[in-house]
């Protein structure tokens, strides 16, 4: 079987310019004075990862270890500085929920806006509209501008929109940490449903228990390097061991 996502020797390098040159004058001054050098920072270094169709892949690691960068590279937001990512199938990214929302518009308008951001047609959203509203349980607030919503309510809408379709790949970045526990359960339930329909899921979470409960494969990132990847039990044990050692 061929991998659905093939991450091949990917490095992602950021220019951490010590001062950011946001104006022409500053830029040329720096250029003339020879101050124009950048500190390079590798958020990812030579990562290779094959993700098979139907996998529930967990990414673990401390803050700043490159998990989100890897997700964004897979989602096509970042273009890797070296190496390449091959994705075969449609992606539903759940990276920071509600990215495409406009706070001045109502929930109803936002459902259509965000749906089209993900590349759905209005007709398709029409047919799924009730399902989205049911899932988010916000029937009474549909015509309220989103700025009057609580963050939990925004997350509900966003999760509902992103998962109405059956994407080939679902990318989830710590989304389950929002909302109350009932809604979290509902989200887990929905993700399991998608999985049984053949969707590949990549999940970033700081809750190792959650990763152990839901994932079948885990990759452990540390300072931009892939430290270990493979079956959940083995990687999670090693990860927990290391954390205990550091604590």
């Amino acid at each position: 079987m061929e991998p659905i996502i093939k991450v091949d020797n990917v490095s992602m390098c950021f220019n951490l310019s010590t001062e950011k040159h946001e104006s022409l004058k500053e830029y040329f001054l720096a250029l003339v004075q020879g101050r124009l050098h950048y500190d390079e920072f590798y958020a990812l270094r030579d990562i290779s990862l094959d993700i098979m169709p139907g996998d529930f892949y967990g990414l673990v690691g401390l803050n700043g270890s490159g998990k989100s960068t890897l997700l964004k590279t897979i989602a096509g937001v970042y273009k890797p500085s070296a190496g390449c990512v091959t994705v075969r199938g449609s992606i539903a990214p759940l990276i920071e929920l509600g990215a495409g929302f406009d706070m001045d518009l109502t929930a109803r308008e936002n459902i259509y806006l965000n749906g089209t951001v993900l590349g759905y047609s209005p007709k398709y959203i029409d047919s799924k509209f009730d399902e989205i509203v049911d899932f988010s349980e916000l029937q009474d607030f549909l015509d309220v501008p989103l700025k009057n919503y609580s963050s939990g309510m925004v997350a509900r809408i966003a999760f509902a929109i992103a998962t109405i379709t059956k994407p080939d790949i679902l990318i989830a970045d710590e989304i389950l940490s929002v909302g109350d526990f009932l809604f979290q359960q509902k989200c887990e339930q929905r993700m399991k449903e998608l999985m049984s329909g053949g969707t590949t899921v990549i999940l970033v979470s700081h809750s190792i228990e959650q990763v152990e409960r839901m994932c079948n494969k885990v990759a452990w990132l540390s300072h931009g390097h892939l430290k270990m990847n493979g079956d959940t039990t083995a990687v999670c044990e090693a990860y927990k061991q290391a954390q205990r050692g550091e604590a």
């Binding site: 937001v77 990214p93 990215a99 495409g100």
Partner: peptide
């Protein structure tokens, strides 16, 4: 920027 940083468009 909020959109571009999170989804591919």
């Amino acid at each position: 920027s909020a959109l571009l940083k999170k989804v591919y468009i």
